[in-house]
Every structure is written in structure tokens, then in C-alpha cells.
């Protein structure tokens, strides 16, 4: 028998510089309820358990089916997407907090700009000549494609970075998701042509050598991306690149 009502304890913050505070809400439990539908209930009647009417909680979300990466937050102490967090499977009361490794924008919203900037740093793209019609792409074994596909499902959600002990609010560590992108593009026949640029970008401060090998990234990845394999592989590729640099630069 499931409960009639769900209690949500939510960590709130009005602006990036103001201090955080907690509020508790009670929402009706409905079939298939997830954290998003609970937050929608709060929007429809934004009153705390103390009977105080407040402004509705704000959060990021879009696709609600775990492909866009928007609605990452810390639920009962664990970082994950709110859409796939089904209420029936969660300990009650449920606590919701914003991710701690990114600056809070407001309530459960954080600024993940750093992740997108890192994609630029490592040139996470294929350098095509142009989008005009110049025929087929490179032929590729399906096994290689399958290997790349798993990596390319990364939705820049930030779970791996939230869990990583090395990644902090104020350092420059690139983190597992970025290393995984380097591997993804280095594995493509055209992408490989710019392999050196990407490997040079992950050397030095904040780079691959700073990884403490805690291996928690892979545990929290909602897409089961083999992040530790990616890190190990990029570690090896970078070592070879460093040796090569010694002789060529």
C-alpha cells in the first residue's frame, strides 16, 4: 500500500549569492508519480506544510524521459535525473537539493556552463570541410560504431562531475564527461585527424593526470557510459602523445 501523500523537503535559494533554506511540501501521491510530477503539484499549490504560501520552487527540466540531461538534481543524497526518479522507489520523506559542484542559479537550478565550455576546450566535434554534398561518410565496422554510440549518449547532465571528488566548484578539472568526449571523437576516422589537439588539451592542469581514480563517475552515470574505460584510454593516449611531443616539439 502506497502513501496517500508525499512529503518533499526541498533546499531552496533565491539568488546565486543569497543563502539557502529548506521548505517542506506535501503533495498527493498519484500512479506513476515521479519527482517532476511532484514539483508540478507544488507549482499548482505552492503552500508549505506550515500553511505558508510561497513562490513555487524552480527547477530545470525539458524532455522528461532522460535524454535531454536537464533535470539533474540531488535526490535523497544521490545525484540523478528527477524525471526517472519514481516516487514509489524512493525513501520518504524525499529530500531535493541542487547539485553542489555547480553554482546555484535558483532553487534546484544550477549553471552548468562549465561543461559546455569544456567541450570547446577539447574541440569535441568533427572538422568537416563543409556541409555541402561531398558524398558518403567513412566506412566503419559496426563494432566501432557501437563503441562510439555508447559514449555519444552522454547528455551533459553533470552526474559524473557531481559525484567526482576531484571536481570542485572552483578548480579547473575537466572531468569524466569531457575525457569521454575526447575518446569519442578520437575514435572516429575523421575525428582522429585532430587527435593531437584534443590530447594536448587534456594535458596539464585540470587534465587527465588529475583524475584520482575514485571510479564513482561510472556508478552514477544514468546512461551507463563506461567512463572509467574512457579515462584509462585517454590516459594511455595522452602518455603516448606526451612522449611523441618530447621528440617532435
Amino acid at each position: 500500500m502506497t502513501e496517500k501523500n508525499i512529503t518533499l523537503k526541498i533546499k531552496r535559494q533565491d539568488t546565486p549569492s543569497s543563502s539557502a533554506y529548506w521548505q517542506t511540501f506535501e503533495v498527493p501521491n498519484k500512479p506513476f508519480a515521479n519527482i517532476i510530477s511532484c514539483l508540478m503539484e507544488v507549482q499548482m499549490s505552492p503552500t508549505t506544510v506550515d500553511g505558508k504560501t510561497v513562490h513555487p520552487v524552480t527547477w530545470d527540466s525539458n524532455c522528461l524521459e532522460e535524454v535531454c540531461g536537464s533535470c539533474t538534481m540531488v535526490i535523497n543524497g544521490r545525484v540523478r535525473q528527477a524525471c526517472t526518479a519514481l516516487v514509489d522507489n524512493l525513501e520518504k520523506p524525499i529530500t531535493l537539493e541542487p547539485m553542489s559542484k555547480f553554482p546555484v542559479v535558483r532553487d534546484l537550478q544550477v549553471n552548468r556552463e562549465r561543461m559546455f565550455e569544456n567541450l570547446k576546450k577539447v574541440k569535441a566535434w568533427i572538422e568537416i570541410d563543409g556541409s555541402h554534398d561531398i558524398g558518403e561518410g567513412p566506412i566503419m565496422p559496426d563494432q566501432d560504431r557501437a563503441k562510439r554510440y555508447v559514449m555519444s549518449e552522454c547528455m551533459t547532465c553533470g552526474c559524473c562531475l557531481e559525484a567526482c571528488p576531484q571536481f570542485t566548484l572552483d578548480n579547473t578539472f575537466l572531468g569524466a564527461s569531457t575525457f569521454n568526449q575526447v575518446r569519442l571523437f578520437n575514435l572516429h576516422p575523421t575525428g582522429e585527424m585532430r587527435k593531437e589537439d584534443r590530447l594536448n588539451a587534456v594535458m596539464g592542469e585540470g587534465g587527465i593526470a588529475d583524475c584520482g581514480n575514485a571510479q564513482v563517475c561510472v556508478e552514477v552515470c544514468p546512461k551507463n557510459i563506461p567512463l572509467t574505460e574512457s579515462i584509462a584510454d585517454i590516459g594511455r593516449q595522452t602518455t603516448w602523445q606526451a612522449i611523441k611531443n618530447l621528440f617532435t616539439k
Binding site: I128, S131, D133, G137, P141, R145, A146, G191
Partner: peptide
Amino acid sequence: HLMDRMGVAFNRTG
């Protein structure tokens, strides 16, 4: 073909 050149991991034949 363009999307394939841009690196989309399209499933492939033998």
C-alpha cells in the same frame, strides 16, 4: 551522408 560525415553513430551493415 552529411550527418554521417559529422560523426553520427548510425548503425551499420556488415
